[in-house]
Design a binder for these strands. Structure first.
Length: 524
RNA sequence: CAGGGCGUAGCUCAGCUUGGUAGAGCGGCGGCUUUGGGAGUCGCAGGUCGCAGGUUCGAAUCCUGUCGCCCUGACCA
């Protein structure tokens, strides 16, 4: 018996995705990715194929962020995929952090082998590492580009793919190869580089909230979670629907560590040679994973309108041959009218689905893909000059008839209403699952996980805890070992995560003073 | 990388314990009947059972190895 049949028998409401989030979150996530046509597994271990509907979301992410980067003075450039092994060795902590997950190219030719297959030949004198991140190759280039204080600041971004040989992969959240952007900047002063780090953190938070409708907490990573080689690592952290934290973006203040390792130096206006202060910052296709786990429900994906591949899907009802021409002409009229309307900086995008499929199939496909608005247009609507509108934020059968002119006028407003609704819902969810805790006992009780067998799926995680912390890495390590919970970040002030946000108190684990409450959670 | 589960048709899986010429449902294609909601019906196509060895007269089934996927953990954007 299929799971859907079982559901029917048990009288549960039929959902497009089985299992539901509640039943098995990890499996639900995979089913959403699959049934929304976002991506699929590939013949290559740990690597996914991003399908058109998923890639279009990424293109919208790129468009949005790229505009913000350029508005803050950054220029795009492109650097090599391969990094000579010796480059990677220059910054000790950096090597340490990435060495275990590097793909290495050792040969440059294939020859016929003794058994008929191909074998690598032409061994390279120096192996090439496939970039896991580009600090080293970009730093080496910066060293040539920067001579004088007049060359600074140097503000560069690259859109690229990187490879990290992870042990365990999950589509969009952690794949061996992934797409991202990495910003790299060099500055004359400490202050300026720090300001850049914070500026880009704010850009990320702005993008996450206003484009992806994904509420984030801005904060600093503790020592243990810092980027290898960085002086400070700042991040945006978001709560997924299983109440785990997802690090959605990072911005690093690198101090002079990389500048010294790579001799990025400039002459100041008094003729002294100084090392630059550098930053790096990045977000990846993981943002799509975060968007899925923030907004998708038991009926599948829900694309925030700002990044939706199509805003509106038109489904003509064409089963009466005598009305077909009329219906299609009316649909063309809708499409033309919407071409004059703009939402979120782009002309409203319409997907006109004329495929010869049964109505229900088509409807559910678009629900599972998460199109924000569907319009059903049949003879009845044409006769009355109406469109029959269904919104992804309402029930599948909760549909509304609107005059075509009214709909066209209001379309952008409706999309914004959907976008705002998503953010509000996600914020409310985070608020409901964020708790203030002041004793060690309550902390352990909160994060205690019920015993489960080895192969059993993990129960839904408890949530975020705002608790004081004396900052001791050994204490954090102990809690990590006990509960698999870590400090997700030390939040910046003014984010209203709890009533006494940002005020000093007492560390519940040691009784020592604590500067402020930090965010504790399990994470991806 | 450790523990667990699993690789059989495009997809989900049954068959394996007790070896004897490959099954179902969904999906696809074609009919008919339908149609404002994941329809019904008839027919058709589709698999050297992950791969490599071994045992056997005979292997999807037993044994060994190997590769891959999923779950839990450690590592990490």
């Amino acid at each position: 018996m299929s799971q859907q049949q079982k559901q029917k028998q048990q009288g549960k409401p039929k959902t497009a995705i089985t299992p539901t989030r509640e039943e098995n979150y990890a499996e639900w996530y995979q089913q959403v990715v699959k049934s929304a046509d976002l991506a699929e597994t590939s013949p290559v271990r740990g690597c996914m194929v991003i399908k058109p509907w998923g890639y279009a979301i990424w293109e919208n992410v790129q468009r949005g962020l790229d505009g913000m980067f350029k508005a803050t003075g950054h220029k795009n450039a492109y650097f090599p995929l391969f990094i000579p092994l010796s480059f990677l060795e220059k910054e000790a902590e950096h090597v340490d952090g990435f060495a275990k997950e590097c793909a290495v190219v050792t040969h440059h030719r294939l020859e016929a082998g003794p058994d008929g297959g191909l074998v690598p030949a032409g061994k390279l004198e120096e192996p090439l590492v496939v970039r896991p991140t580009s600090e080293m190759i970009i730093g080496a280039t910066f060293a040539k580009w920067v001579q004088s204080h007049r060359d600074l600041p140097l503000l560069i971004n690259q859109w690229a793919n990187v490879v990290r040989w992870e042990m365990r992969t999950r589509m969009f959240l952690r794949t061996t190869e992934f797409l991202w952007q990495e910003g790299h900047t060099a500055h004359a002063t400490d202050e300026e580089a720090k300001a850049e780090t914070m500026q880009m953190l704010d850009v990320y938070a702005d993008f996450a909230e206003n484009w992806l409708a994904m509420p984030v907490i801005r904060g600093e990573k503790t020592e243990g979670e810092r980027f290898p080689g960085a002086v400070e690592t700042w991040c945006i952290e978001s709560m997924m629907q299983d109440r785990k934290a997802l690090q959605a973006g990072t911005s690093h203040f690198l101090g002079q560590n990389f500048a010294k390792a790579q001799e990025i130096q400039f002459q100041d206006d008094e003729g002294n040679r100084e090392f630059c202060w550098t930053t790096s910052w990045g977000v990846s296709t993981r943002l799509i994973g975060g968007t899925i786990m923030t907004h998708a429900d038991d009926d599948g994906m829900f694309c925030p309108p700002m990044v939706a591949p199509a805003h509106i899907v038109i489904q003509p009802v064409l089963h009466k041959p005598e009305a077909k021409d009329e219906v299609m002409a009316f649909c063309d009229k809708i499409i033309e009218a919407l071409k004059t309307k703009v939402y979120g900086g782009r002309v409203i995008e319409v997907e006109y689905d004329t495929r010869d499929l049964r109505g229900g199939d088509k409807t559910w496909q678009w629900i599972k893909r998460g199109a924000p608005i569907r319009l059903e247009v049949g003879p009845r609507d044409v006769a009355e000059g109406n469109v029959f509108m269904a919104r992804r934020d309402k029930g599948p059968k909760d549909k509304q008839s609107l005059k075509l002119e009214d709909f066209v006028e209001r379309a952008a407003d409706i999309l914004q209403e959907i976008q705002d609704g998503l953010l509000a819902r996600a914020k409310a969810f985070r608020k409901a699952n964020t708790h203030v805790i002041d004793t060690e006992e309550a902390f352990y009780e909160f994060f205690k996980t019920p015993e489960t067998a080895d192969n059993e799926t993990a129960p839904i995680h408890a949530g975020f805890v705002m608790a004081h912390f004396n900052g001791d890495p050994k204490l954090e390590e102990r809690i990590k070992n006990d509960l698999a919970v870590t400090v997700r970040c030390i939040p910046l002030d003014g984010q209203k995560l709890c009533d006494d946000q940002g005020r000093p108190g007492t560390c519940p684990f040691t009784g020592e003073p604590s500067a402020k409450r930090v965010v504790w959670a399990k994470s991806y």
